[in-house]
Computed example of a mutant assay.
Amino acid sequence: MNNFLTDPAQIERDSMSFIHQNLQRVWNAQELKVVERLIHTSGDLGLEPVIAIHKRAIEEGLHALKQGASVITDVEMVRAGIAKKALAQLGGTAECFLGDLRIPEKAAEWGLTRTMTALRLNKERLKGSIVAVGNAPTALIEVLELARNPEYRPALIVGIPVGFVGAKESKDLLWQKQEYPSITVLGTRGGSPMAATVINALIYLAIGRTL
């Protein structure tokens, strides 16, 4: 064990330093915090070329967080990964609507997935929020559909669903919608940990945490 660091803070500092030294693209200081955490979470320096950050994404995300915006997730796994105590310092909460008891009946009636139905049933909660999708491409498609109405439009969409069926296509569609500030990882890679880590990077920027 003498060859391994055991101080968690030092491990994180060294990890971020290694990532920073090996980046290939030019990122501004705030974007860098998001990029470093995405690469740290994935353990993959090769992720950098497919990270896409809208020019207004961080500005809009930080403004929303500082106004006490909610973070709405597609699945509980994303919500579980969010730094909820730090988010609470800003007056916000992390929410997932999959526990809504109306979902099974409405999903069958509307012919939608449960994640889509959960969002549609609670669409009024989306306005001004930050939406984080890390699992279900269909949820991301539903958010984009709902966002067409300004009354249901989030301040920021973090769309990083994972998989080989619909994930790439949903993220391509998100990135095409440049009228919506967004952060994504293009292609098939993604997942709940990545979506949560983007939210945490924004939360830490908002409260002034350096790591």
Rank of each mutant, 00 (worst) to 15 (best):
188 T>M: 07
159 G>H: 01
31 E>T: 06
143 V>P: 02
120 R>H: 11
187 G>W: 04
43 G>L: 14
125 R>K: 08
32 L>S: 01
14 D>H: 13
61 G>C: 13
39 I>C: 04
175 W>L: 00
56 R>I: 04
74 D>P: 03
11 I>W: 01
73 T>Y: 07
39 I>Y: 00
168 K>V: 09
14 D>L: 15
4 F>Y: 08
90 L>A: 15
101 L>N: 12
136 A>Q: 13
54 H>K: 02
111 G>I: 10
77 M>G: 06
7 D>S: 10
95 E>T: 05
93 T>Q: 14
186 L>V: 04
108 A>P: 06
170 S>R: 01
210 T>L: 09
164 F>S: 00
76 E>R: 13
71 V>Q: 06
137 P>E: 03
130 I>Q: 01
114 R>N: 14
65 L>W: 07
206 A>I: 00
172 D>M: 01
173 L>F: 05
147 A>P: 09
153 R>S: 09
26 V>G: 05
3 N>E: 08
205 L>V: 00
161 P>T: 02
119 L>P: 06
207 I>Y: 03
173 L>R: 08
39 I>E: 00
69 A>D: 04
116 M>W: 05
100 D>M: 01
196 A>P: 12
56 R>T: 11
201 A>F: 04
128 G>D: 04
195 A>E: 11
113 T>M: 10
38 L>Y: 08
39 I>T: 01
175 W>I: 00
32 L>C: 02
127 K>F: 03
109 E>R: 15
2 N>M: 11
72 I>A: 06
116 M>H: 06
179 E>G: 00
40 H>R: 10
122 N>C: 03
170 S>Q: 03
210 T>H: 11
93 T>A: 06
121 L>Y: 05
154 P>Q: 11
101 L>T: 14
99 G>R: 14
46 G>I: 12
27 W>S: 09
184 T>V: 13
77 M>H: 06
135 N>T: 09
197 T>L: 02
132 A>T: 10
173 L>M: 08
158 V>D: 01
154 P>G: 06
182 S>F: 13
79 R>L: 10
114 R>F: 01
192 S>N: 09
9 A>I: 15
119 L>Y: 01
151 E>P: 00
198 V>D: 01
94 A>Y: 01
154 P>C: 11
76 E>I: 06
82 I>T: 02
14 D>P: 07
52 A>G: 06
2 N>I: 08
29 A>L: 12
15 S>L: 14
147 A>H: 10
55 K>Q: 13
199 I>H: 05
117 T>R: 07
68 G>S: 07
172 D>H: 04
208 G>I: 03
119 L>T: 07
63 H>C: 15
195 A>C: 07
158 V>N: 06
7 D>G: 05
72 I>W: 07
134 G>N: 01
39 I>S: 02
3 N>S: 11
84 K>N: 12
